[in-house]
């Protein structure tokens, strides 16, 4: 049986190792992948918007995609800075649909609804769910309208907290189709 495909975890800027290790151990329990911690990369200055005091998520994704580590099925960037895309006030993360790279920001995920720091039992599921959601996009999955699916759009922390870290039946089938198209066989959700 071939080894599961690898997801490369790339910290962008300074990211707490505990968070990265949590993702490394949790993601393979949900997706048929192994996770490798890769070397941290600095955040390029040109992605910073001085007026918005945020980083352009699309530009950061392009930066990640420019220098892909070899042998990785997908790359998930993790950053502590706040992200935006030009038309939206902020985003929790972004991914290239059907592409190689995805990105999540810990900035808003680490906050409670009232602005205080979120406790670990709230914060850690959020990073796993955000990571799964964005990785789902890299596997060609769009936003899903099935309740309780990880690919459902969540525009607020409240909605993100309500979701479970699972793909619905439809998304799992489409995910498997995608993986098979990529030559990754004998996969099923664990």
């Amino acid at each position: 049986m071939p080894p599961p495909p690898s997801i490369g975890l790339v910290p962008l800027g300074s990211v707490d190792q505990k968070i990265l290790r949590h993702l490394k151990t949790t993601l393979p329990g949900i997706l048929p992948v192994s996770v490798q911690l890769l070397k941290a990369r600095p955040i390029p200055l040109h992605t910073y918007h001085i007026v918005r005091e945020q980083h352009n998520s699309t530009q950061l994704l392009e930066y990640l995609a420019q220098d892909l580590p070899p042998g990785m099925f997908k790359v998930l960037g993790v950053t502590g800075v706040d992200l935006y895309i030009p038309i939206l006030t902020y985003v929790f993360g972004e991914a290239q649909i059907g592409g190689d790279v995805a990105l999540i920001s810990l900035y808003r995920l680490s906050q409670e609804l009232d602005g205080r720091l979120a406790p670990p039992h709230v914060f850690w599921p959020r990073i796993v769910k955000s990571g799964l959601h964005e990785l789902g996009h890299t596997c060609n999955l769009k936003h899903c309208r099935q309740p309780d699916c990880i690919m459902q759009f969540s525009g607020s922390l409240e909605k993100l907290d309500q979701k479970n870290p699972h793909f619905c039946d439809y998304c799992r089938i489409m995910l498997n189709d995608y993986l098979e198209q990529q030559g990754i066989t004998n996969v099923s959700e664990r």
Binding site: H137, H143, R145
Partner: peptide, 15 residues
């Protein structure tokens, strides 16, 4: 262009 691209990209993700 930047608005068109970012909005279109986001909406495509919504299907």
């Amino acid at each position: 262009l930047i608005i068109r691209e970012s909005l279109a990209g986001w909406l495509q993700r919504d299907g």
